[in-house]
Simulated assay, not measured.
Amino acid sequence: PKRPAPAAPEAAPVSVAPEAVAQVSAAPAAEAPTSAPEPAPVPAGTPPPPEAEPAAPRLSPDEAFDALYAHSAPGLVRQTYLLTGRRSLARESVERAFQLAWHRWPEVAVDRDPAGWVRAAAYEYAMSPWHRLRRVHRHPDAPPSEPARRALFEALLDLPPAYRRTLLLYDGVGLDLPETAAETEASTPAAAGRLEVARAAVAERLPELAAAASPAEQSELLQDRLGGLARAEHVPSPSPARTVRTGSEDKARLWTRAAIAFVALLIGATALTLHTAPTHYEQPLSPPERVGGVPPRGGPQKLTPQDVRLQKVLKEQLAHGPERLVPRIP
């Protein structure tokens, strides 16, 4: 980027005496010049002033996003495929990243590297461990049939995700070490250590990489091999930019409606709770307890079997008993 031009030095403040101000105020109006002063003569041989360059046409947000998408999306899908080994996940990650970029376009448009912003978002989504729970992304795609590309493909997928990302950014994309460390959220020594370990692991599968004399030759060879692997594999093309923008707007609209529905449900539940809640304190009833020491209830005892037989006999002889004795007078 061009360095900004130095600012012009400010003019020193000029002090004007009160007498001069009075003289200017008292001067007659007729002495004021009625015509503009003639311009100073231009010396012969002076080149004409340079004409101002026409300003570049200002792009609308839609046009700027479409230009960034057309420039970065196809290559970013291939890079994400090398990172994950899954074609459908690579395309999905790139489209999700651009949807997020369109949702935050005022922030992305003024970023120092909009393509890097989208790349970081796509890599973060592609490396999420939650994709292992999805059946369609549980296993990587079939490796290439060529032995050299197959060995490089398997060596990449055997690396830990952080090491694989560092190797791809430095040797595949071409970032320098501080930029790679910043994008992977690591320190520069940590990124250098990851890069060295990743190169050693890949060199065990690729003899030509192990035969390279210097790290610069290893980086150049890896960049060539990674680019060839990404171009040789058939990776699905991303959706049109308009479809991505529409999907981002639909998703934002859906989340807005869901948030409004949740707030309305929360307000309704709160209102129902306030309406049905008791307005005064009701003392709870104490649990019942068994009372002891009370005498048993009184009353006739239960008849025994002998009493029952006697009662039956008396009832039968009541009507057929002996005749009443009549007293006699002596």
Rank of each mutant, 00 (worst) to 15 (best):
A90P: 02
A17K: 09
G116T: 02
E95T: 08
Q79P: 05
A201N: 08
R150S: 10
R194A: 09
A190S: 13
A20Y: 09
E217P: 03
E124R: 12
S35G: 09
P140T: 04
T166L: 04
I260H: 11
G268D: 03
A122K: 02
K315I: 07
Y125I: 01
L303S: 14
D158Y: 07
A203C: 08
P147H: 11
L195W: 03
E323Q: 09
A211G: 01
T84K: 08
L59I: 00
T188H: 13
T279W: 15
Q99A: 15
H234I: 06
P238G: 05
L226H: 00
L152Q: 01
A259P: 00
R231E: 13
L76W: 03
L89T: 00
L59P: 05
G85L: 00
P33C: 05
V313L: 15
V326A: 07
E38K: 10
A216I: 04
S72V: 12
R225Y: 11
E183L: 15
P28W: 07
P178K: 12
P236M: 06
P284E: 10
A210I: 03
R104S: 14
A52H: 08
T84Q: 01
E289R: 14
D250T: 09
R138L: 08
A90W: 02
R328H: 12
A26I: 10
V313Q: 14
E10F: 03
A162P: 15
A216C: 03
S15E: 15
Y123V: 12
E208T: 09
